[in-house]
Simulated scan of single mutants.
Amino acid sequence: MKDNSRAVPAGYSNIAPGYIASVVTCLEMREKPVGAPVPLPEGFSLQPLADRNPDAYRNLFRKVGANWLWFSRLIMSDETLISVLQNSRREIYVIRHNSEDAGLMELDFSEPGEVELVFLGLTSDVTGKGIGRAVMSAATELAWAKPVRRFWVHTCTFDHPSALGFYIRSGFEPYERRVEVQADPRLSGHLPLDAAPHVPIIAAR
């Protein structure tokens, strides 16, 4: 196994103005958890993404992830994003509440024998109602319905404060930490300036 223990030096490291940094925790499960699936509450459904138009997808992505600085799909070119959305080894689902989009869930089966939970997020109006637990249950069922040996996910310190504990309670075990540094997507216009107020903007002077 590669030793990354000295990849980031001990102590403080300066982050350039205009950039953001987060601590990423990677988690995995090596076998399907025991227990009956958790059904979605009445009025909620999990539907395969029908509209693969990149602009429509970005709108949903912002709606779900802006408060947590989701930006990876926003900075992609249309060509790259279209290739992601049309990849047959990716299963992308919209969480619907009656007739409204209320969340996003994506599984990536690109690597043989494993599946990544790339995204799982809900809009703010439906959080705290047990929906996440039901969606995670559905994601787990979908993941382990394929011949996989590992199901993994990563979360970071920009995410909802309960995200890491939620994944651990769902059966994932932490195995690695990383530090991610990126240009602040609010300063580039990919997200509004008032997105993720818990992460202050430090712009170059």
Rank of each mutant, 00 (worst) to 15 (best):
I82H: 09
P192T: 14
I131E: 01
E180S: 11
A145E: 03
E42H: 06
V148H: 01
I201K: 12
A7T: 14
L40A: 03
S137G: 00
Y12F: 06
A102C: 10
D184Q: 04
D125P: 00
S110E: 10
M29G: 01
G35L: 11
V8A: 09
S99I: 13
A10M: 12
G171I: 10
R169K: 15
A21R: 14
V115F: 03
S45A: 14
P39S: 13
V94A: 08
D108F: 10
A163M: 02
A21Q: 13
A16F: 06
G11T: 03
T140Q: 10
L69S: 12
R6Q: 05
G43S: 07
P33R: 15
Y93M: 14
E79V: 13
D108V: 11
L49K: 00
G18F: 06
G189V: 03
H97E: 13
S170D: 02
T155P: 02
R58C: 00
L85R: 09
F61R: 09
P54W: 07
N87P: 03
D3C: 00
P192Y: 08
R178F: 01
H190K: 15
L40K: 05
G103F: 04
G18Q: 08
I82V: 12
E141R: 05
C26Y: 15
A145S: 12
M76V: 07
L60W: 02
D125H: 14
H198D: 09
S88D: 07
Y12R: 13
R62K: 12
D159L: 06
S22I: 06
P41K: 09
L40T: 00
F151C: 00
L46H: 05
